[in-house]
Design a protein around this nucleic acid. Structure first.
Lengths: 245, 245
DNA sequence: CGTATGATTGAGCCTACTCAACTATTGTGG
DNA sequence: CCACAATAGTTGAGTAGGCTCAATCATACG
């Protein structure tokens, strides 16, 4: 199971027993390759399944009735996609692959099994969901209570922090497959503003850009200006139930 | 246990056995009255406890380094406060009472007990957390991809939908203890804009206002203009584990 | 009645948006 | 391998909507 992104990601927070790893392996059993730009599902099709991202970048988005688009979340390897759908009987969220990659779909009932068998994994899922709430609250703040400059600083800090969870060799450079329109659609700003703002940040030596990647030259300054706090690095697992033998 | 807001709220989604009601009753065991305007906690004090709201309105907020304030969530009777804190070892979120009310604090380990004893309640908590994610995504959309007009329409629709969960006698009038600065601090707009926008909506017969309350005259129109979808009315419980005898 | 809080209104500014043209890059077929 | 198309990014000009600052009005409360 050394190839499981999910195990790698979750092991970052708690020690997993072999039994728990086996439970997780079931969630990554089947595989579905996707190509860049592919629409994985649209509208009503998705509520029955969740996905583990094995490889590639994707995003969840919704089309707005004014013609705009809201990108709700960028997904990376190791992420579980569709958690919010747990609550919904129907919805209007779309999933699109940014790069080519590979997904492992599993039905909602797969979680059922985890809940029955492992209180510790259940607590972990609950905590991951709680953390996602914290992150979304941060996004609201970054998007609504800031200028584009701070918003984009937040975006870059968040991105690199997330990538560091599963890739400990990350330094200060992010491979960036998203275009500026997509970045803007996360926070409700236009591609024009993204372009101008990134250009300004580059001229101030905060970042450096080259084809398809961004380098954070002054990560501390970016964190400070955007009130960024890393929600990914640590997690309170002290209250978790212990593993059962 | 007929007085438990939590049981009332959760019963709206699933049938609870007596054993499950007892488990929940433990969470509401101790009581803490609060007065209007009271700061319940600030900063580091809160991670150990969560609260069930028995009575009153409250909000969670964070002070921003630019002097602003971000109100992350309004809390009503039956809500569980502090779920996002599950993930955090420390944080900077404050809790303030809007009206006088009553809270029932319980430690994180209280959830531990629920996880061990009731897979069904665990699934419900997981689902409530998932729904909260959906709502927060809606808030991002309303705050960042809309004008103040649509943002406030969303705010009003969301509020009345939430109040309807525990109060089935709600019609079209909301008692509104929040001032316009507070409403603005949810979405990152100023009190001035809130004032002007509400005034405009009133002149268009979308709403009516009187001291301390708002009436939604055309709820359908408000929903349409803000792309509002009611996340509270229904919930997918089909995948839940069954209650154990 | 005086004070404090909240809401309204006005004037001026500034920033992000819109629209549009242009440049750069990437990919594809002849 | 080159020509062309498609996509992405940049830049400019003009506009408008939300912000700031500030004064005034309304309401509630001691």
């Amino acid at each position: 199971m050394s190839s499981s992104c999910l195990v790698t990601k979750l092991s970052h927070y708690v020690d997993l027993t072999d039994q728990e790893k086996d439970l997780l392996a079931v969630l990554e059993k089947s595989e579905q390759p996707v190509v860049a730009g592919q629409e994985i599902y649209a509208g009503g099709d998705s509520m029955e399944r969740l996905f583990v991202v094995k490889e590639g970048w994707l995003y969840s988005y919704a089309n707005l009735h004014d013609g705009g688009r809201h990108i709700a979340r960028i997904h990376h390897p190791g992420d579980i996609i569709g958690f919010p759908n747990l609550a919904l009987t129907h919805h209007a969220i779309n999933l699109r692959a940014v790069t080519k990659g590979c997904l492992c779909p599993f039905p909602k009932r797969g979680l059922d099994e985890v809940i029955q068998q492992s209180p510790k994994l259940t607590a972990l899922f609950l905590t991951l969901s709680a953390r996602e709430q914290v992150v979304l609250i941060d996004v609201i703040r970054a998007a609504s209570h800031s200028r584009p400059r701070e918003t984009l600083a937040y975006f870059l800090c968040d991105l690199i922090a997330r990538l560091r969870i599963t890739n400990s060799t990350m330094t200060d450079t992010i491979r960036m497959p998203l275009n500026q329109t997509e970045i803007g659609d996360i926070f409700g700003v236009t591609n024009v503003t993204v372009s101008r703002t990134l250009a300004a940040m580059e001229s101030e030596q905060l970042i450096a850009r080259s084809a398809g990647s961004v380098r954070l030259l002054q990560e501390d300054a970016l964190k400070r200006m955007s009130d960024f706090y890393d929600r990914y690095a640590e997690m309170d697992t002290s209250w978790f139930p212990k593993s059962q033998a």
